[in-house]
Design a protein around this nucleic acid. Structure first.
Lengths: 249, 249
DNA sequence: AAATATTTGTCCGTATGTATT
DNA sequence: TAATACATACGGACAAATATT
């Protein structure tokens, strides 16, 4: 498939032309079209390729500039601003901090909220505990390069892991928090990956705009004896990340 | 997160209200809201919850009916039509036919097109061959339960695997086609997963509507000696599938 | 079995938003 | 900036099919 070919835009599809074009251009940018220089064709040429008026292309570019994907300079042109996708390894020893080491400068894990709640059906099954058992649920967000990258919801046994919310808040890392609670090591037991349109919470927490895509990974971690210790659901901003399986992960 | 809460709809966002509502309802359906019966609240109630007119909700429902997600019956109500997500295992021995065995009735692999082309940078690197080396590219589509589930582009060394297009067309299976060419067994070497909005080709081949999401898996298969034999890029309709890693995959 | 209430399907007209010229 | 065409969204009214009493 020729990635440079803009492709036809669909009218009366319920999505405004300028938004369709913005979505397509976001794709093109993350696919590395526009080459080394990152310079986009002039607006008039883009308008012609998409088969729309220049005003419509300008609306699309305005959104992408606001998102930080593009940068416009009067008289010079429009340029790609975004960095390449981060590569997130998934495997037996999946850990956020290790996985992205070397790919990004600052990495910050922030505790958004924590609360106690009884185990629902899905979580209880994943953790191998009775339904209704007391759990601690952590809502966290992680940033890379100064922008939100993913948000996670994780569930722990409230008795065995009492105080993990405070430990996480202090360390900003699940691995470190578990270590404070006596878990020296753990492994990933299973991971399930799906993809969706970003929901309202994603738009807010990950600072996305409507129509953005999120990768959703649900995983179970177990201690070295094989007992499940946490169930977590992580939502990644799909534009910024790829999940890598195998290859020494 | 309360899955039943419709969430706020944004006006003037470049996405029509009926499409935002359709996207949200598609999510709710695949999250298993609407319970065992699969019966949706009446249009008037939905309209009230979303804060729009009944006609707007009807436009959203009309799209989902056309997609096969919902089914409307005059006088009775509107019901969930979609089946649960298929679960696709990713691991050393990933194979389409084995992976989905037992989950779906009919499974058909169709050859859309094939052609010879020189190796591009990415493919050459993945297959460990010189750039510009002759390749055979296969475009295929697979259906499950009578609806398109995924489409794949795969690249093979044109010399070693001459005639694989005919073999695939005849058998409808990569595994079978490779066996005809003397490859008795092979393993998955690596997989990379991303997610995007469906592009024009996806909309056409997978029969999706604009705003749909696709899971993209890029993988390298190697023979038992560890030599790469194929590079493939598979695009799954994200609504219909989840990728499962670990757990005996 | 009959009357009533619910729920989806269709039609009208009008106001606003989007895209082009 | 203004004029035009079309898509989107709303409100109301009624018909048709089904469910309830």
């Amino acid at each position: 498939m020729d990635q440079m070919t803009p492709g036809k835009i669909q009218r009366r599809s319920g999505v405004a032309l300028w938004r369709q074009i913005a979505d397509r251009m976001r794709q093109l940018v993350s696919a590395g079209a526009f080459g080394e220089t990152g310079k986009l064709p002039p607006e008039l040429l883009l308008a012609e390729q998409f088969g729309v008026n220049r005003h419509t292309v300008r609306s699309a570019i305005a959104l992408l500039v606001q998102e930080g994907v593009l940068r416009s300079e009067q008289g010079r042109g429009t340029f790609v601003q975004a960095r390449p996708r981060l590569s997130y390894p998934i495997g037996m020893r999946t850990r956020f901090s290790d996985g992205l080491a070397g790919q990004t400068q600052e990495r910050i894990g922030v505790l958004i909220s924590s609360q106690r709640e009884p185990a629902g059906t899905a979580v209880a099954q994943a953790l191998g505990i009775p339904e209704g058992a007391p759990l601690i649920r952590l809502e966290t967000r992680a940033e890379a390069d100064g922008r939100p990258l993913m948000r996670s919801t994780s569930w722990f046994d409230a008795i065995r892991f009492a105080g993990i919310d405070d430990s996480y808040a202090a360390t900003g890392s699940i691995t470190a928090a578990l270590k404070e609670l006596g878990i020296e090591d753990y492994t990933r037991q299973s991971t399930t990956v799906t993809a969706q349109l970003a929901d309202i919470g994603d738009l807010d927490i990950l600072r996305l705009s409507p129509g953005a895509v999120v990768l959703v990974a649900e995983a179970v971690d177990a201690d070295m004896a094989g007992w499940p210790i946490q169930f977590l659901r992580t939502r990644f901003s799909a534009d910024r990340i790829e999940l890598r399986i195998g290859q020494g992960a």
